[in-house]
Design a protein around this nucleic acid. Sequence first.
DNA 1: AATTTTCCTTAGCCTTGGTAATGACGTAGG
DNA 2: CCTACGTCATTACCAAGGCTAAGGAAAATT
Lengths: 141, 141
Amino acid sequence: MSEDDLVAVSQLRSSAMRLARRLRHQRVEESLSPTEMGVLGTLARCGKATPGELARKEHVQPPSMTRIIAMLEEKGLVRREPHPEDRRQVVVSSTEEAEQILNESRRRRNAWLAELAEGLDEDEWERLKAAAPVLYKLAHL
Amino acid sequence: MSEDDLVAVSQLRSSAMRLARRLRHQRVEESLSPTEMGVLGTLARCGKATPGELARKEHVQPPSMTRIIAMLEEKGLVRREPHPEDRRQVVVSSTEEAEQILNESRRRRNAWLAELAEGLDEDEWERLKAAAPVLYKLAHL
DNA sequence: AATTTTCCTTAGCCTTGGTAATGACGTAGG
DNA sequence: CCTACGTCATTACCAAGGCTAAGGAAAATT
């Protein structure tokens, strides 16, 4: 790995962490913790999931996920149904209201980021736009 | 703002947040919280700072910063001296040991990210490398 | 059929951050 | 001057959110 590559990696690392920290401050729903938002996000992607699956995906221990789901259910953002085949398990799915909150949150953060990007000149923005799909792929590898 | 731009913004947002979350799991010093690492980072950049300044930069309330500094001082990562002109204030600076921890942490995260980047092909990596300085600029705007 | 495993949940603790109140020090108005 | 107010750090207490340990029910295994 070349010196240039190392510099790029380091820049990517610190940029991602700093951007994420600043984006986190933009969250629209003050009553929802980042982890709760994360759960809603994965539910939006996957449709439905059991508490155990959600705990693994969010890197949280099962008891914590139990409480997070209880919170979300109390707020009407999530539904719990018995598992059709395994009566130990539970199936969790998100409600319509949760989708709206997610969309609003994404909209707000996009707006904030777009405003920040005003500070870039034309050429810089082109380069960033060209790399955006790659960054997306990297983040999901 | 064009449709393409909106897509790029959205990709940047979700990629940054996801990468940051995964990077956070790579932290080397288990005994240091993310905020404590953040304080050490800003001290490394700024040299010295008062608790109030640190609290503002880390988006934390002053009492919390007081306690964080106390923790760091106990671990020998930070020094506290009286302010030369204003006897209400305190000047905080990081120690040599803190620098080492910071470097090691960065090294680990870079290594992790570099390994992840192995999953990209040559062209993708070139595009990302070209955009890395821009992303860095954006994150610090 | 009995034992083990898996899954969710409950109970209790710890860390971390926040607000309110305090005390020491600087600053401005009379 | 000196009194009143603002600012800075700190202390004391409280709430949120995560973890471990332990429990109870259902499935899997032997």
